[in-house]
């Protein structure tokens, strides 16, 4: 199976082509770190990646994309592009969370064989967080919460942390007398990791955003003039 994976949900615009016939570690990747500009960068990056991997879009069996949590705009850039590619080629598209992709990235790097916490900066004093076993099984749901709450409720088996908020978590753990090893503070997953997870994913649900936060919206105050 040939999978094309895209991530634009965090601080990078990246994509990978993975041909499982050539082995799980054979992904061709392109990674461009960036905070904004994903929408402009993605298509040229895909064109370059396809040329480098010698593939055309008609050869792709499955499309994959990170669905969040991350920046709302970045999530939609990736999902819109992947849904468009899937629609126009008649192929399936699957979604992978950024948190699962970060855990898979750590696993690919051979960091640890123990459970790991993935912690991403969510601003406003909060982090996006989820813990995974060494096999990538979720230990609880993905959540957005203050770092202190995440550490307080972290399963005892988790002894390491990765992600842009990893150091923050390690410091918080230390403050409450717990040891959490910071294994890396990458701000985005490897697209090859997204592709690897997509190969195993259920292809029956199309990718949908995982925002974890409601939209910023309040009903506008009634400036209406009193009526009888």
């Amino acid at each position: 199976m040939i999978t094309l994976a895209v991530d634009t949900a965090l601080a990078a615009c990246s994509a990978a082509v993975l041909d499982t016939a050539r082995g799980e570690a054979s992904a061709v990747e392109r990674i461009k770190p960036m905070l904004r500009g994903h929408a402009e960068a993605l298509m040229p990056l895909l064109q370059g990646l396809l040329a480098e991997s010698g593939r055309s879009l008609s050869e792709i069996d499955r499309f994959a994309v990170t669905i969040g949590p991350g920046t709302f705009t970045g999530i939609r850039v990736g999902i819109s592009a992947i849904r468009g590619l899937a629609l126009a080629t008649g192929r399936r598209a699957v979604g992978v969370t950024t948190l699962a992709a970060m855990a898979e990235t750590a696993r690919m790097a051979g960091f640890d064989d123990r459970p790991v916490l993935v912690a991403l900066d969510a601003r406003r004093g909060e982090i996006y967080a989820q813990a995974f076993t060494a096999d990538g099984v979720e230990l609880g749901p993905a959540r957005v919460a203050p770092v202190a709450a995440v550490i307080a409720e972290l399963p005892g088996s988790v002894a390491s942390v990765v992600g842009s908020a990893a150091e923050l978590c390690a410091r918080q753990a230390q403050a409450v007398g717990r040891n959490l090893a910071c294994l890396g503070h990458d701000a985005a997953p490897r697209p090859g990791a997204v592709a690897r997870l997509a190969v195993k994913a259920d292809a029956d649900t199309r990718p949908a955003p995982l925002y974890l936060r409601p939209p910023d919206a309040r009903p506008q105050d009634g400036a209406a003039i009193p009526r009888q």
């Binding site: 929408a39 993605l42 298509m43 895909l46 064109q47 879009l57 705009t73 939609r76 850039v77 819109s80 592009a81 992947i82 849904r83 468009g84 590619l85 629609l87 126009a88 080629t89």
Partner: peptide
Amino acid sequence: LVGLMTGKAIALA
């Protein structure tokens, strides 16, 4: 961005 990315993807594909 939603419409633009979807349109670009279809054009590319």
